[in-house]
Structures are given as C-alpha cells and as structure tokens.
C-alpha cells in the first residue's frame, strides 16, 4: 500500500475517476454520439434520396423526350398521310371532273351532231319536198301557160321567185 501511496493512487481518487468516466460516457452518448450518428444517417438517407430523385428525374426527362419524339414522328407520319391522301383525292377528283367533262363534251358533241344530222335531214327532206313542189309547179305552169315573150317570161320568173320567197322559210 505504501508503494501505491507513493504513486499517488488512492481508492477514493480511483473511484472518482471511474465514476467520472462513466458519467462522461453517458453524457456524451446522449449529447454527442447519438445525435451526430443520427444526423449522419439522416444525411446519408437524404443524399441517397436526392440521388434517386435525380435519377428518376433524368429518367423521366429521357422518357418525355422519347415520347415527344414519338409524338412528333406520329404527327409527321399522319401529316404525310393526310397530304398523300389529299393529293390522291385531288387527283381522283380532277380525273373525275375531267372524265365527266369529257363525257359531257362527248354527249354535247354527239347531241349536236345528232341535231345537225336531224336538221340536215329535215332541211333535205324539206328541200326535197320543195324542189318536188317547185318542179311540179314549174312543170304545171310550163304546161298550163304559154310563154310568148321575154318580158313575160322574166315577169313570170320574178313572180315565181316572189311567190317562192313569200311561201318559203
């Protein structure tokens, strides 16, 4: 015990140091270790969350971009289709119109031709009839009347023509 005394060791001081350490540990455990480790853990989670969210955001952005591209592509394709359709329609309509016009023109022409033919035929028939009439009349008049002189003949033709004119058309 004398040696311990020389080294300054006493059980009271030893005990006080042990208690001191115990108290310090408990205090620091509550005051320092727990809050700090919690904070570090919390921060770690925050960082992980942040990274995850950033990942998600960039994924979403990429998806949106892809979607945009798809929509644009679709729109472009549709526009193309619409244009092609329109062109096709226009061509078809033009063809229709042209066809109809051709047909009408043909009809008109044919009708005109038919009319003309009919008229011609009617005129011809009429003319033939008149010629026959004239011929008959002329023959009758030649046969029925004696033309004595020139003046009388001329007057007779003029009369005939005047008569023809009057009865003609």
């Amino acid at each position: 015990m004398d040696a311990l005394d020389k080294l300054g060791i006493s059980w009271q001081l030893l005990l006080s140091q042990i208690i001191n350490f115990g108290l310090l540990m408990v205090i620091l455990q509550q005051l320092l270790y727990k809050p700090v480790l919690n904070m570090i853990e919390q921060r770690k989670q925050r960082i992980a969350e942040g990274l995850e969210q950033a990942d998600k955001a960039s994924n979403a952005a990429a998806e949106a971009e892809a979607e945009k591209q798809a929509i644009l592509e679709e729109a472009r394709r549709e526009a193309q289709e619409v244009r092609a359709q329109a062109t096709r329609d226009a061509e078809r309509i033009a063809q229709d119109v042209r066809g109809r016009a051709d047909q009408e023109a043909q009809e008109i022409r044919m009708k005109a031709q038919a009319d003309a033919e009919a008229q011609t035929a009617a005129v011809m028939a009429d003319a033939r009839k008149q010629i026959a009439d004239l011929a008959i009349a002329a023959t009758e008049q030649i046969l029925g009347r004696e033309l004595a002189n020139r003046d009388e003949q001329e007057r007779f033709v003029a009369d005939y023509l005047a008569q023809q004119n009057g009865s003609g058309s």
């Binding site: 080294l7 300054g8 060791i9 006493s10 001081l13 030893l14 006080s16 140091q17 042990i18 001191n20 350490f21 115990g22």
Partner: peptide, 11 residues
C-alpha cells in the same frame, strides 16, 4: 495521474 490511467485500465 496514475489514478486516471488505472481507472481507465480497470474499466
């Protein structure tokens, strides 16, 4: 102070 070091050693 040996009291402190001894206390820690004992603990």
């Amino acid at each position: 102070d040996l009291n402190m070091t001894l206390a820690l050693a004992l603990i």
